[in-house]
Computed example of a mutant assay.
Amino acid sequence: MITHKHIHALCSFCGIFHPQSCKSFCIERCLQHTHTHTHTHTHTLTFQTWSFEFLSTMKISLEISVSLLTTLLATGICLQCERCESATRSCSGPLQTCKEPQSACLTLTVETRVGKTRKVATYKGCTKLEYCPPGPFTITTAPEERIRGNSECCCQDHCNKGALRLPLLSEPNQRWCPPRNLRGSTCTIDDKVFCHGREIYCIYLSGYAAAGSKNETFVRRGCGTQHICTDKLGISGIPGLFLETLMKADCTQANEIDDSDFIELSRN
């Protein structure tokens, strides 16, 4: 026999998804029940039929809701990301509503050190999932030229707030790579680049970068960590703020230093 307890339990469960429609549905079925049915057997059949109709309706409604939610998440509709850029290790700005096919929020921070000069850039905004670069990483391109960076992609509203932690600049690790950062189309530099910390790969990366209205080519050669050791070519970054296109990449194991290298290594 249907009781108020039964109705309340089923309506409470449905109300998680559609409170108003559930309330109307329960009231309608309750009135039908009390108006015509008096026998226990009939009550049982009515409750079974009502339960089947109720659960079937709820299942269809839930399937539609899940399908719609999945579509929204997949296309990036309604996702909001903080958008900003700065010459520091952090920045904050207004929320940007992502447009299809952008479905992730990206934070990217890169620091370049040449001698005592340090340059930092941070970018935040909406991007495609395939534009999310690997991180964290460090690169040594010469004894006094080092690059470190970190990136993070996430898929929830305003999930890219705050700053990223950059990897530490560690001590030499008894490995080396040929030669340092190349500028121009030709180079005959023969000196070795000594690796640091977790830099156990010799990397070669070339391509071009676009930051705002500035476009420049780059060639980086030296020691690198695992996340920068890649053969995946393509675009990474945030459309409209910073995009880097990797056209060529090569990665091999770094060489171990021998006795003759210790003197040179101690000078660095």
Score class of each variant (00 low, 15 high):
Met1Ile: 05
Lys5Cys: 00
His6Gly: 00
Ile7Phe: 05
Ala9Thr: 11
Cys11Val: 12
Cys11Trp: 09
Ser12Val: 02
Cys14Gln: 04
Cys14Lys: 07
His18Ile: 11
Cys22Glu: 07
Cys26Lys: 06
Glu28Thr: 12
Thr38Asp: 03
Gln48Met: 12
Phe54Arg: 04
Lys59Phe: 11
Ile60Gly: 09
Leu72Cys: 07
Leu72Glu: 06
Thr75Arg: 07
Arg83Asn: 11
Cys84Met: 12
Cys84Thr: 14
Ser86Arg: 08
Thr88Ile: 01
Arg89Asn: 15
Ser92Gln: 10
Gln102Arg: 15
Val110Leu: 07
Arg113Pro: 00
Gly115Leu: 02
Thr122Met: 05
Tyr123Ile: 12
Thr127His: 05
Lys128Phe: 03
Leu129Pro: 02
Pro134Gln: 08
Phe137Ile: 02
Thr140Ala: 04
Glu144Lys: 09
Glu144Arg: 13
Glu145Cys: 05
Arg148Ala: 04
Ser151Gln: 04
Gly162Phe: 05
Leu164Asp: 02
Leu168Met: 15
Cys177Asp: 08
Cys187Ala: 15
Phe194Ala: 03
Cys195Ser: 04
Ala211Gln: 14
Ala211Pro: 01
Val219Cys: 09
Cys223Ile: 06
Gly224Tyr: 10
His227Lys: 01
Leu233Val: 08
Pro239Cys: 03
Pro239His: 07
Ala254Lys: 06
Ser260Ala: 03
Phe262Arg: 14
Ile263Ala: 10
Ser266Arg: 08
